[in-house]
């Protein structure tokens, strides 16, 4: 299926850009008129993915994070990608409360949050090459469209 709109950005792996990425995704997704709850879930999932790239992918060193979004009539696909160290054991990384960095007070809940707040989650990773998180979210279509189309 062809997307109805798409965008691509890249930014430095700095923690200040976690909020930036959330705002960008939220602004782009707003075209589909999602509910506030759906937007909050999307922002949280994106925040987790970008934070993972910064802390784990680039191990808090310099790097570039790539974010791509595709809009479909009733859903959004978000890809967050880094060219960092990659994940050795994806199944282990997905285990709730498992963290490879307990010394940084990480909760190990990142992937669990992404899984539960989005509809699909795919992790592609290669050690030494990087990681891509591909996630999609459907938006409920039970809103009053006649009202929203007047904007």
């Amino acid at each position: 299926m062809q997307p109805i709109n798409k965008m691509k950005i890249q930014f430095d792996s700095k923690s200040a850009n976690e909020a930036f990425a959330r705002v960008v995704v939220s602004a782009f997704a707003s075209q589909l008129d999602p509910t506030l709850e759906e937007l909050a879930e999307l922002k949280t999932a994106v925040s987790e993915a970008v934070t993972n790239s910064i802390i784990h992918g680039y191990e808090q060193m310099e790097g570039i994070i790539y974010m791509e979004c595709r809009l479909f009539p009733e859903s959004i696909e978000v890809i967050v990608r880094d060219e960092g160290v990659g994940i050795e054991d994806i199944e282990k990384a997905r285990t709730p409360t498992y963290t490879s960095k307990p010394e940084l007070e990480r909760s190990g809940m990142g992937f669990s949050v992404m899984e539960s707040f989005m509809d699909t989650l795919e992790i592609q990773s290669k050690v030494g090459k990087g990681t891509a998180i591909i996630m999609t979210k459907k938006f409920s279509q039970q809103k009053d469209r006649s009202f929203s189309s007047e904007r």
């Binding site: 990480r106 909760s107 990142g110």
Partner: peptide, 13 residues
């Protein structure tokens, strides 16, 4: 107004 799993890590810590 917003919290992700980093907040959980902070609270548990």
């Amino acid at each position: 107004t917003f919290m992700d799993s980093s907040g959980i890590g902070l609270i548990v810590g």
